[in-house]
Design a protein around this nucleic acid. Sequence first.
DNA 1: ATTACGATCCACT
DNA 2: GTGGATCGTAATG
Length: 191
Amino acid sequence: MFDREALARPANEVALDLLGATLSRDSEEGRVTIRLTEVEAYLGEMDPGSHAFRGLTKRTTVMFGEPGHLYTYFTYGMHVCANVVCSPPGTASAVLLRGGEVVEGLELARARRTTSRSDADLARGPARLVVALGVTLADGGADLATSPFDLTLPTVRADHDAGPRTGVSGEGGSAEYPWRFWIPGERTVSP
DNA sequence: ATTACGATCCACT
DNA sequence: GTGGATCGTAATG
């Protein structure tokens, strides 16, 4: 369980509280829990890098909704990525879950990620994290405070480093928005 | 109806 | 370290 008010703030602030947080998902096969080590913030309509930059569309409806819900999308023709919606309803901002460490359900996560040989690779990268957790597009819009999900924020804010985001280019691009955050020294963070 | 593009991963060198 | 795969979304004709 988590305090929803804690998520009703801009994504670049919420991102710092999500580092070190744990996210669980139950399925018929069991439960997998991931400790988040790398995240990236997107500030909705103000942000050229955000899917919500051009306003409310069918896909981005969830992002404009209540914080604490899951925003999933399909990209590059083959991958699913997951975000935690932040900011109050009517404001679109979200935090992309970029990487984490599997802390529960290791066997199940390995079974879902047969291509990765090392445990550190199980949830390193947005699409991999989603597969290890067992999240699908159908989970889009789900409330992370209810089954099968369970999100727990850390009681003490984790150490963090910040850097430019990937994939955001052009004017008003990555240089102005150092909103990629990670926990220093973690093996589950991409270079 | 059509088309350009992307918040990436994996196999291979 | 690099290149190819692959399709939903949203803007355009």
